[in-house]
Amino acid sequence: MTATTGRPTAPAGQRWRTAPAPSFAHLIRMSDDTGLFEHARHAIVRREHGYCTDDVARGLVVTSRQPEPTEKVVQLSERYLAFLTHAQHADGAFHNRLGHDRRWTDAPGLGDWWGRALWGLGTAAARSPAAWVREEALVAFSRGATRRSPARHAMAFAGLGAAEVLRRHPGHVAAAALLRDAATVVGGPGPDPQWPWPGQQLSYANAALAEVVIAASQLRHGGPPLDTGLRMLSWLWDVQLRHGRLSVVPVGGWRRGTDRLRYDQQPIEVAAFADACATAATVSGDPDWETGIRQAIGWFLGENDVGTPMWDPETGGGYDGLTAHGPNLNQGAESTLALVSTLQYAQRWS
């Protein structure tokens, strides 16, 4: 793959051709009338750990963008939207952690959960089939979009929500300003072609940083050049390929100049990469990015460093991490949402 085109050195495997439709069964199992529980032991909910805005927001993203959702999936969207509007403070910030006793354990803030909440709300405002959901989500998004976080990832997630709003409401001034500011906070490639990335470390959901820069290139005024985000994503793809398979940066991250570990790989990295490739394919019109999506789907189906499936067909849950000895068999919300999110691309790019 070159540094500018995103073309892979090896083709994707073929398991994506047999990818199943995304199942919402485990999300339904993990949800109650309040929201989405964060953790599970294998497939059994761990209620004592409560809920978090981070995961509920991810849930609203995947349920909102599901084409022709069933009644149960729409009900999940409604539940997740109600959770996020309850989590939002009047000033636009959000609580993150709610105990099983229905009490918040933190103060409203502008961390990653604020950004992901805006991503979920923006996606619902743009894509929900229910008009009242779109309207309420847009109200909550607009309130949160007045705030700014100094953190790259929080701004990237918020910017992705803004990009969703702009697809349906191109004149939304607050969304355009937020997307522009998100791209500015993320920054562009560094001067060294061997490390064309903002910052000296890859951490988590890395592809989201490149994706928001790509999305911001479509702004009418003040957006970065499209090539800026594509070069970031192309390099990230290159360094996460091993023998033609995705081998994503593990949970501990990777700092420039240090040895890179191979495990524990997290599903969120794969889902973020699939999302970014889908945006790159749509914005650039270059079908080569579809190979990245197929590699992400393949990772969940066993085309990974251990050669093992990263989901449970019986429950519909996604496994929590890829270790040197196989999957972590716990099926928490984040991992299941990453699985569902990635499989949503299987039919479109099959």
Rank of each mutant, 00 (worst) to 15 (best):
A215W: 01
A280Q: 07
V283E: 08
G223F: 15
P189K: 15
A210G: 06
R180D: 00
A280E: 04
V185C: 05
P267W: 02
H243I: 06
G188E: 12
L233F: 03
L241H: 14
A205E: 08
P193S: 08
V186F: 11
I214M: 05
L233K: 03
R220K: 08
A208R: 10
G244E: 01
A280K: 01
Q240N: 12
A274P: 05
T184M: 05
W254V: 06
A216T: 07
E164S: 12
W197T: 01
T258Y: 08
D259R: 15
R255F: 11
A175N: 00
A205G: 15
R167E: 14
D238A: 15
D192M: 04
C277H: 07
L219C: 09
P250E: 03
T279R: 14
C277D: 01
Y263E: 10
Q201G: 04
G229F: 05
V185I: 15
G188T: 12
V283N: 04
A174M: 08
A162P: 02
G188W: 14
L230T: 14
G187C: 11
Q200H: 10
P196M: 12
L226A: 12
P224T: 13
R220P: 00
P250S: 02
G257I: 13
H221E: 14
Q200W: 11
P196S: 06
H172V: 01
E211K: 11
G171N: 14
E164R: 15
A280T: 01
G190C: 11
H221Q: 10
N206E: 06
A208G: 06
Q265P: 10
A163V: 04
P267N: 03
L236I: 00
A208L: 11
D238F: 09
V173I: 10
R260M: 14
G188N: 11
L246Q: 08
R220N: 04
T258E: 15
L233P: 08
E269Q: 09
L261N: 11
T184V: 07
P191K: 14
G253P: 02
Y204P: 09
A177R: 11
I268R: 09
R256H: 12
S203V: 15
G171W: 02
H221F: 03
R220Q: 11
S217M: 08
V270I: 13
G244A: 01
F273P: 02
G285I: 00
G229R: 04
D264V: 10
Y263T: 11
A175V: 01
P267I: 06
G285R: 01
A176R: 02
T279L: 11
E269S: 09
Y204I: 12
L230Q: 12
T279C: 09
A281I: 00
S234H: 04
E211N: 04
P189F: 12
L178M: 06
L166M: 10
A210Q: 02
A183P: 07
V185L: 12
V185R: 13
G188A: 07
G190T: 11
D264S: 05
G252W: 00
D181K: 11
H243P: 05
V251T: 04
